[in-house]
Design a protein around this nucleic acid. Structure first.
Lengths: 235, 235
DNA sequence: TCAAAAGTGTTTTTTTTACACCCATGC
DNA sequence: GCATGGGTGTAAAAAAAACACTTTTGA
């Protein structure tokens, strides 16, 4: 009513930084923009928030529409809001609420339902090349996910519902970019309270060779804090 | 242009959770609302984002307008964005970007320039009584500030530019709600790299009695991460 | 039998914790 | 002198790190 004239209005978007670990490297999902501004450039998946739509729901919806990723196994949390007045070239102000997502479904996602193609790219390759202020958003997300691996249960969200400690170690090594001692990692993760649960089953190791590994299941929510952090170090 | 008709528009506000330590307890700055909705109720200071205004600038401006707090010594960082469709009773959608602030100027702030009075209240007393969704925002801020004390330099922002380790210990005790061993705190904080710097001066202790304490100055930015965290424990 | 990966043992080093004790000041 | 808070010493306990070694499989 009277507010409509008193205060400026904004367009609201959500942008989602979806991470996965592919071939031992941290990868991010990007889409090629079909229209101006930045037509043809790579960008983070995202779009406008709908009327009466929850922000988190908007992030989930954009993810499905642009990349085909469904909520199953997906960890999704608000990252930060980016609202610099000049962050969008268009003649009106667009503020974006960025979300951080982690998924184990890195394969079945290239086929988006929208016209744009969505592809996984190693973070190191796309960093510095994205449209809008998405480089800044990606950098923020990268720092955040590395931190979250230390003091939350998020690491498991890169993996399917059942996994081995070697797979989990691969996640930590990829995100942190360092080598971790297998033995010490084993002990540390096994002793973390309410984090992992053994299924009793065992799985063949990566290369086909080697002793079969014990299979684990996650306990607790991805973004809940750990009682004792997993420190970022060589171990 | 064509977007103006395609997508819904939003009003954007900033709300600021300003913390200080008063009488050994964590306190938050609240203002009494003068108009509907929630007229007469306590709320966090905040207001609408201006045309072409940076979000952070809007937070700073609201703080000055409503509470008289200026940027000097103030640590201010984005907290989270709250955008539930029904979070504002008014007939249009209002999304709020919440900011976390920490200040040493807990005294000189009761006199706001706006009509509303701004007062410091112990967090434990106001929690659960605020207007809008400000209880949720306050709870989020409280968790965040406790975490930030562990792995960033933020603790010092509760104190003036020069302070003693006993004062700093008081901050940690107030925010974490636990007693800390003075001796161990001393060692831990002195050995933290790029965190504190001795001024060489000494200050009389709290009660007037006792050995004078060494006076320290902060090094580095409030929100920068520490090389080695200060763990939340009795020490 | 050999290579490779999983998992355990063991020792060294570092950090944390508890708490005794000394220091410097006001009353 | 003595109470009070500042600051150091020290020893026990716990955690982290380095790395040798055993286990279990496929080739």
């Amino acid at each position: 009513m009277e507010y409509r004239s008193e205060f400026p209005v904004f367009y609201l978007t959500v942008d989602v930084v979806v991470f996965a670990v592919l071939d031992g490297a941290l990868a991010v999902l990007v889409v090629r923009r079909g229209e101006d501004p930045y037509a043809g450039r790579w960008a983070l998946p995202g779009g406008f928030v709908g009327d009466g739509e929850e922000l988190l729901d908007a992030a989930r919806r954009e993810l499905v529409e642009e990349t085909g990723i469904v909520g199953d196994g997906l960890a999704l949390e608000q990252l930060k809001t980016f609202g610099a007045p000049d962050r969008d070239r268009r003649p009106h102000r667009v503020v974006s609420v960025a979300y951080l997502a982690v998924t184990p479904h890195a394969e079945a996602t290239t086929a988006g339902t929208d016209a744009e193609e969505a592809v996984w790219r190693p973070v190191d390759e796309v960093a510095g090349t994205l449209a809008f202020d998405h480089d800044e958003i990606l950098a923020t997300a990268r720092e955040r996910v590395a931190s979250k691996l230390e003091y939350t249960r998020l690491g498991r969200s890169f993996l399917p519902p059942e996994f081995t400690l070697a797979q989990l170690r691969g996640v930590y090594e990829a995100v942190w970019g360092l080598d971790i001692d297998p033995g010490n990692f084993q002990r540390k993760l096994r002793s973390a309270r309410d984090f992992l649960e053994s299924t009793g089953a065992s799985a063949k190791p990566a290369g086909g060779r080697g002793r079969p590994a014990e299979v684990f299941r996650p306990i607790g929510e991805p973004f809940d804090k750990l009682a004792t952090p997993i420190f970022r170090s060589a171990m």
